[in-house]
Design a protein around this nucleic acid. Structure first.
Length: 260
DNA sequence: ATGTCGTGGACGCCACGA
């Protein structure tokens, strides 16, 4: 199974790039974040023409996640039990079973600044996710993938210059501990290959950061113990960050040997 | 240079979020 995760920063604005990428890469399952559309406005027909069924969880203007699959899409669950909200619960996770693999995709709150209520919300959301995943694992889903935009760089190696991030979100001890707590459920952080430069997945649009290599690895693919030995390849498709009207994130692609 | 995007409201720009 070829599985990908990609924060597209608006599926409507990105549709030409998404369709081109799907046709070229042909992943079996694609997890999208920041779709920024209500379910009724999602381009289900366009991806359907390429053979993908869609599991959608959209809000409208902000957030929004989706799973596209051409190998089946069952037991779809939008959000999770006990999910925290800020003013309201937002569209930040969707799960589905695709060819025997339980796939969760998440768009973790950004947090903004360490003194913001959005930061407290981010930590609460990650704690809530941990509880929901613990329940899922307890229910016996051996083959589990949790992927998406975590808005956390797990280590100092995951940012271009740790000194630039002192006092910022995405690198704080509490955020990193929240990710470590997810890994403690028996999940492994798959480290994708960089096709060039360092293995980052996100580069700010501003200041030519992509071309300067000033990125971060905040898009993660976590796999359960049953799947970890089955990862045969993983890479970041930086080509998708180049060219005309790209997202500010690149897709992470993971090849899983799930046939047996 | 905080140098860019995307969305949507009421526009031909601004506010907001990332």
């Amino acid at each position: 199974m070829l599985l990908a995760t990609w924060n597209v920063n608006s599926v409507v604005a990105r549709l030409p790039r998404l369709l081109e990428w799907l046709a070229a890469t042909r992943p079996d399952v694609v997890c999208l974040q920041e779709t920024k559309v209500a379910n009724a406005a999602f381009p289900s027909d366009a991806v359907g023409e390429l053979g993908y069924a869609s599991a959608l969880h959209g809000d409208g203007r902000w957030n929004g996640v989706a799973i596209l699959s051409r190998v089946g899409l069952e037991a779809v669950a939008a959000g999770f039990e006990g999910e925290p909200g800020l003013d309201a619960v937002e569209a930040r996770s969707v799960a589905a079973t695709c060819a025997g693999v339980r796939v969760w995709t998440v768009y973790v709150p950004n947090g903004r600044t360490l003194d913001s209520p959005h930061y407290t919300y981010k930590l609460a959301w990650l704690a809530g996710l941990r509880g929901a995943l613990a329940a899922e694992i307890g229910a016996g889903h051996g083959r589990l993938v949790v992927c998406g935009d975590f808005n956390v760089a797990p280590t100092d190696d995951d940012v271009w210059d740790p000194a630039e991030f002192v006092g910022s979100t995405h690198v704080s001890a509490a955020e990193r501990e929240a990710v470590t707590a997810l890994l403690a459920l028996g999940l492994s952080d798959v480290h994708p290959r960089a096709l060039k430069g360092r293995p980052f997945t996100y580069w700010d649009y501003r200041a030519g950061n992509f071309h300067k290599g000033l990125g971060m690895r905040i898009d993660l693919v976590l796999v359960s113990e049953a799947l970890a030995p089955r990862v045969t390849d993983a890479f970041i498709d930086r080509e998708a960050r180049k060219g005309s009207a790209p997202s500010d994130h690149a897709p992470v692609v993971v090849d899983l040997a799930t046939e047996s």
